[in-house]
């Protein structure tokens, strides 16, 4: 696999340097902690919001730092949780009088790093609360999780709490809001190919020419099934079916009812995993939009493009987010981030 790389160990720092140099005055790069932060943060009138995860998911999350979104992102190496130090020091640098909010995708390593960091931050008198995102419907448990995974749906959580934070919402209000958004997002991903972490040098999995991985996670973790490649429409049908009929486990034995029904309004996201052309994403979107409308689910707004990727994986995920008036206004509120400045 050919890649643009100098030293695999410097892959993440060199990327972060690029983000900072491309956005002067908007974001700052603190190289000791892989931290990309808003240049004007922290602000004592606003809760500081930090997301950490592995790298390799860009634009999540280092490129969604900015007004109306994150105040900081402190990624670990490619597909590795950030070390606890990064989380602690980043949180200290961004500490605000209104507190610090951590948004964490539900992966074991990320959970552990952020929970451990929160304990030590509390020892130091810093108020931290955490939202865990687990929107993936593909599997109940995966190799890297206890419970469901957090995938591209995290965008909606970040966007909503980011907008509310700009309006001065308190830390507790943001936690309630973030959990509420997490409850109305469902995602499912699939891959046509694996991807290659720079330090590893070989693909994390390989698929035959006629195979796809259905229900894949954002680090290429296996999903529901390895199956034969079918038409784009059949793939969308299968994924929408999984999302619309999903019953989220709420305890060892109980599951929640499906959350989408006819008459609901949704935001529909077709997220590229890094190696799917935009043309294909729109092809998929068109059919998914029609199918939802045919089922009486109204598509309120579209999100098509790359939001949460797996390096160069050829694949995509579908996310539905059920919206109400409050959520609509938060999703429509202005945001200014590196990837959206024209």
């Amino acid at each position: 696999m050919k890649k643009f790389v100098n030293d695999p160990k410097q892959f993440v720092p060199e990327m972060l340097k690029g983000i900072a140099l491309a956005n002067p005055g908007k974001v700052k790069y603190v190289s000791d902690y892989n931290l990309i932060m808003r240049a004007d943060a922290p602000n004592d009138d606003k809760v500081s919001i930090i997301q950490g995860s592995g790298s390799g998911h860009e634009p999540a999350h280092v490129m969604v730092v900015g007004k109306g979104m994150l105040d900081g992102a402190c990624p670990g190496d490619v597909f590795s949780a950030p070390p606890i130090d990064y989380v602690i020091e980043s949180s200290k640098l961004l500490n605000s009088a209104k507190g610090v909010l951590h948004i964490v995708n539900n992966y074991t390593g990320d959970r552990a790093a952020f929970r451990d960091a929160a304990e030590e931050l509390e020892d130091d008198g810093i108020t931290v609360k955490t939202i865990f995102v687990d929107d993936d419907v593909a599997v109940k448990d995966s190799l890297y999780t206890v419970g469901r995974r957090g995938v591209a749906g995290n965008f909606f959580v970040i966007k909503a709490v980011g907008a509310a934070a700009e309006k001065g919402a308190s830390l507790d209000e943001l936690v309630i809001l973030g959990n509420r958004v997490n409850d109305v997002i469902r995602s499912m991903g699939m891959a046509l190919s694996g991807c290659t972490p720079p330090a590893k040098g070989k693909p994390i999995f390989t698929l035959a020419d006629d195979e796809v991985e259905m229900g894949v996670g954002i680090h290429g973790e296996p999903g529901r099934a390895r199956q034969k490649l079918t038409s784009a429409n059949e793939i969308v049908d299968q994924m929408l079916e999984a999302i619309l009929t999903d019953r989220k486990p709420i305890s060892e034995t109980e599951t929640a009812d499906p959350i989408f029904s006819a008459g609901d309004e949704v935001a529909l996201m077709i997220n590229g995993l890094g190696g799917a052309p935009i043309s294909e994403l729109y092809l998929l979107y068109g059919y998914a939009h029609e199918q939802l409308e045919a089922k009486g689910v109204k598509v309120w707004r579209s999100y098509v493009g790359e939001y949460c990727t797996s390096l160069e994986m050829a694949g995509m995920s579908i996310t539905l987010c059920k919206v109400d008036d409050e959520l609509k206004s938060l999703l429509l509120a202005p945001a200014e981030i590196p990837i959206r400045v024209f």
Binding site: S80, A81, P83, I84, D85, T108, G109, A112, A113, R115, D116, E119, E120
Partner: peptide, 21 residues
Amino acid sequence: AKIISRNIGGTSGSLWRAAFR
């Protein structure tokens, strides 16, 4: 616990840290 968390990466660092803490 603090030393462990700074010197053992990943999940096992978190587990041993939690034990000591």
